[in-house]
């Protein structure tokens, strides 16, 4: 079985047949890696139920998850798109600053703590979504709240 997509680098040959009509349409998120990474924890915060539902469906679908879990998948995509849309309407400047910083720093989150702090505050104020890292040991400051970052190019406090 082909586990990899066919990539044609000579000519652009992509099967563009649209989805059949009996499957409801959904608009894809359409964001690239850096904005998605920047918004990942907010997506995780708002869409956890949908995400878990989708992954559970796939797990229990006995190898037919691709077709059987389309409905759950649409919910996941709509929820994530709603988060991106909300961030874009309310915290566009901070969001842009953060993901552009990520883009320029090899997607290393610890280089962009200042922008991240501003984004987190704005998103929490406007949307009520909070970044929490599951599994952080008790009594430790979560890494994203430490002003000094161990591996950052700038060794001092970032905010």
């Amino acid at each position: 079985m082909a586990q990899r997509d066919a990539r044609f680098n000579q000519t652009v040959l992509v099967d563009t047949t649209p989805m059949p009509d009996h499957i409801p349409k959904v608009e894809e998120v359409g964001a690239t890696s850096a904005p998605l990474m920047s918004a990942a924890y907010f997506i995780g915060d708002r869409c956890k139920a949908f995400n878990d539902d989708f992954m559970k469906c796939k797990d229990e679908a006995n190898g037919r998850g691709e077709i059987d879990c389309l409905k759950e998948g649409r919910k996941v995509t709509r929820c994530a798109a709603s988060v991106i849309k909300d961030i874009n309407t309310h915290c566009l400047d901070q969001f842009k600053a953060h993901w552009e910083c990520l883009e320029n720093n090899n997607h290393q989150l610890w280089e962009c703590r200042r922008a991240e702090m501003q984004l987190n505050n704005c998103v929490f104020d406007k949307l009520g979504l909070k970044k929490t890292i599951p599994g952080t040991p008790e009594g430790q400051v979560p890494v994203h709240l430490r002003p000094k970052q161990k591996y950052a190019q700038y060794p001092g406090p970032q905010w």
């Binding site: 990474m37 990942a40 924890y41 995780g44 995400n51 989708f54 796939k58 879990c69 998948g73 995509t77």
Partner: peptide, 24 residues
């Protein structure tokens, strides 16, 4: 390294989204 946990979870939160798109 706690930074590794942060990176892993940032991806874990996105996995269903990316998987759903690919499945479609």
């Amino acid at each position: 390294n706690e930074l590794a946990r942060e990176k892993m979870w940032s991806r874990l939160h996105l996995t269903p989204l990316l998987q759903a798109e690919e499945d479609r």
